[in-house]
Structure formats: structure tokens, C-alpha cells
Write a protein that binds this DNA or RNA. Structure first.
Length: 246
DNA sequence: TGGAATGTTGGAAC
DNA sequence: CGTTCCAACATTCC
């Protein structure tokens, strides 16, 4: 559930709770004072990268699903929610196995919306500038850097690199300008494809690289690296058609 | 059925 | 003192 597009889906589902008052807040979270939430109205629902944000008049709830987190709407589908918010008419939001935090600062001070690949104010030139500053970093690590590509996760990383035919262990500073531009463009483009496929419950069938064994372009076995780069995440790539720049 | 995985943090270690 | 490494968190699937 964790990559950026999935959080956008949640945000859109949560829009129907805007203007509704929290009647009760329960759950096993210890990091927030649940009493502060009661009788507060949801003013807005936002997302930044993998963060889901529920805005109340005086504070914002930040939900991060980590690796295992999940949610359900209205019906509680699992035991021991981390946080449950009850509304009138039996409506509810339930969050499981996630990190819940309270934000009291102005969101615009904390979040650079232009760094979120799913955001309408996504700024490719800023991403390019950030990448130029870290030329020796492996591209696989740059895609997972939330300060550059907020919302991109390991599935998107593998798919983007396959699409643009770049070996994950290429140094970002060695990419020709056109490839660098492609990297930035595809990070956003693929994320929106991911969003549409996920909405249609057909995400997996569109995977070309992630968890795949054979390269669909070359028909030869993919290389699988269990813990690649500084981020130590799974990599699936073709040693033939994904070029190594170094 | 043990191990690994769509992720991040915080503190130890160097 | 800055950087790097690793355990911890906690659920689901194969």
C-alpha cells in the first residue's frame, strides 16, 4: 500500500469526510493525544509523497503506512487499529500498523509540495538541480530519495529504470542530459500510470521488471539483486538493454 | 513455515 | 563530529 499513488487514492476516498466532525478517536497509538481530535472537523485531506495528511482546524494528523500499514473505510476490517476515527452515521476511518503523528506547524513550512511526483506543483527543474548536486550517487538510490522524488517507492524505481533503459547502478552524474531528463519525466509519468492501474485493480499485470524473471525486450533472464545500493532495496533489471553509465 | 517484502527512523558504531 | 550501518517496528504472502 505504501507508494505515493496509493496514498493519492486514499486521499481521494477520504475527501468524503471533509466537513465531518470526529465523534470519537480510539486505537493503540501512543504518539498522539486522541482526546485532542474529538469534536474537531476535518478541514482538508492532503498527501505529500507517502504521507497522508488529515487537516483539522488547529493541527494535522500525519499517517505513514511504512511497509505493512493499511486502512479501511467505515467497516473495521482488522483487529487493533492504530487509530480509528468515528463520524456520524456509522462512518469511520481506520488505520492499521502505521505511524501516526501530530503536526502543529504550518504544512507549507514543512512540506515542499514541488518535490512530490504526484503533486500538481511538481517541479522537474528542482529535481534536476538536486540530482546535479549528488553526481556520484547511484540512480537506484536517487529515485528512492524522498527529498528528490517524494512518493517514489521500490516498484516505481524498478519500472522507471527499465522503461528508460538505465542500469540501476549508473552514477546519476554520468547520465547524458537527455537521459537525466527522461529519468525525471518517467518518475512522474510512471507514478500516474501506477495510479490508474491501481484504481483499476490491475497494477501487477503491468509490471515489466518488478519481480519479473525474464526481460520482455530481450527475452533473457533479468538480474536480481536482493539489497542494491545504499538504500539496500531489491532490484530487477536487464544486463543487456539497461545501460550502465559510469 | 521461515523468510522476505511497496519503508522510515533513531541511535549505535566508526 | 559527520557519516554509515543496523535493529526495530509489524503484517502478509509464498
Amino acid at each position: 500500500m505504501p507508494e505515493g499513488p496509493s496514498i493519492v487514492i486514499l486521499k481521494e476516498q477520504a475527501y468524503s469526510f471533509k466537513g465531518k466532525k470526529i465523534l470519537e478517536a480510539t486505537g493503540n497509538t501512543t504518539l498522539i493525544d486522541k482526546a485532542l481530535l474529538v469534536n474537531q472537523k476535518i478541514v482538508e485531506c492532503k498527501s505529500w509523497g507517502k504521507h497522508f495528511l488529515i487537516c483539522l482546524p488547529k493541527l494535522t494528523l500525519r499517517i505513514h503506512f511504512m511497509l505493512f500499514g493499511s486502512y479501511s473505510i467505515n467497516e473495521q476490517t482488522k483487529p487493533n487499529p492504530r487509530l480509528s476515527l468515528q463520524f456520524a452515521g456509522g462512518k469511520a476511518l481506520h488505520f492499521y500498523a502505521c505511524s501516526v503523528r501530530m503536526i502543529t506547524e504550518d504544512l507549507d513550512e514543512i512540506y515542499d509540495w514541488s518535490g512530490d511526483v504526484m503533486n500538481e506543483s511538481w517541479n522537474p527543474s528542482k529535481a534536476r538541480k538536486k540530482l546535479k548536486a549528488i553526481p556520484d550517487t547511484l540512480v537506484c538510490d536517487t529515485l528512492l530519495d524522498q527529498a528528490i522524488f517524494a512518493g517514489v517507492g521500490n516498484i516505481i524505481k524498478n519500472e522507471v529504470l527499465f522503461r528508460i533503459r538505465v542500469h540501476p547502478e549508473s552514477k546519476v552524474g554520468k547520465l547524458p542530459p537527455r537521459k537525466l531528463a527522461e529519468l525525471i519525466k518517467e518518475a512522474r509519468l510512471y507514478s500516474f500510470n501506477f495510479l490508474e492501474w491501481k484504481k483499476a485493480f490491475e497494477l501487477r499485470k503491468h509490471w515489466l521488471a518488478y519481480t519479473k524473471k525474464i526481460c520482455p525486450r530481450c527475452n533473457i533472464p533479468f538480474i536480481k539483486v536482493p539489497h542494491q545500493g545504499k538504500t539496500k532495496r531489491r532490484a530487477f533489471y536487464c544486463g543487456n538493454c539497461q545501460l550502465l553509465y559510469r
